[in-house]
């Protein structure tokens, strides 16, 4: 219940209508959107029960490892109702054509593979919010100071998922496990995304805001 309340509203991409469509424009829009989403997601993390009790250093380490997984999982959940399209924001939905134009066809196809998995399972909002918190708590940072505290956070979230499934999906006792088993693909896809945006950063043609840059650099 606390995670459902903490779930942030979607934000708008607001692509500049005066700029003609191009790969640079699409990537600029996405990087600006990601930067603003990250601010929102850091605020969200503080509402995960147990997260604020971690040391500041461990909170930072988990976010530095897991931020892209959180961004992608949010796009995936928003896209469940559509067919072969990614809802980066309510006013920014990418189809195959736009993905090609932005040079994001491979990455977006990988994200669509996740969408397909969750569609097949009928992922619910309750499951999505817990899974997202688990992705953060389980982001496997190498810099954790108090790994027992992080383990306790993982256990609490894992327990919440198991309780939810026991109550709401007693017909499928393996549903919680099935959901956890989607996390490797999320990790893999996030790693691809980070790699892709690191090379865009090195190109230097797309302006990026400071928080997005800071977190990309934490992954470099």
């Amino acid at each position: 219940s606390l995670l459902l309340v903490a779930e942030p509203e979607g934000i708008f991409a607001m692509p500049d209508p005066t700029v003609p469509e191009s790969d640079i424009k699409a990537l600029t829009t996405l990087c600006d959107l990601a930067d603003r989403e990250l601010v929102v997601n850091i605020g969200w993390a503080k509402h995960i029960p147990g997260f604020p009790s971690l040391s500041l250093a461990d909170q930072m380490s988990l976010l530095q490892s897991g931020w892209m997984e959180i961004l992608i999982l949010r796009v995936v959940f928003r896209s469940l109702a559509l067919e072969d399209k990614l809802v980066y924001a309510e006013d920014y939905i990418m189809d195959e054509e736009q993905s090609k134009l932005a040079g994001l066809l491979d990455l977006n196809n990988a994200i669509l593979q996740l969408v397909k998995k969750y569609k097949t399972m009928g992922l619910e909002k309750e499951e999505f919010v817990v899974l997202k918190a688990i992705a953060l708590a389980n982001s496997d940072s190498m810099q954790i100071e108090d790994s027992e505290a992080v383990q306790r956070l993982q256990d609490v979230l894992h327990g919440a998922l198991q309780d939810y499934e026991a109550t709401n999906h007693p017909e499928d006792p393996r549903r919680a496990g099935k959901l956890i088993m989607t996390l490797p693909l999320l990790r893999q896809t996030a790693a691809r995304a980070v790699q892709h945006f690191c090379s865009i950063k090195q190109d230097g043609r797309v302006p990026m805001h400071k928080l997005f840059l800071e977190l990309l650099e934490a992954k470099a």
């Binding site: 850091i42 605020g43 500041l56 909170q59 930072m60 976010l63 928080l211 800071e214 934490a218």
Partner: peptide, 15 residues
Amino acid sequence: KEKHKILHQLLQNST
């Protein structure tokens, strides 16, 4: 930590 000052600031904000 100096390298990650925006994240640090956002986590420290009370909101």
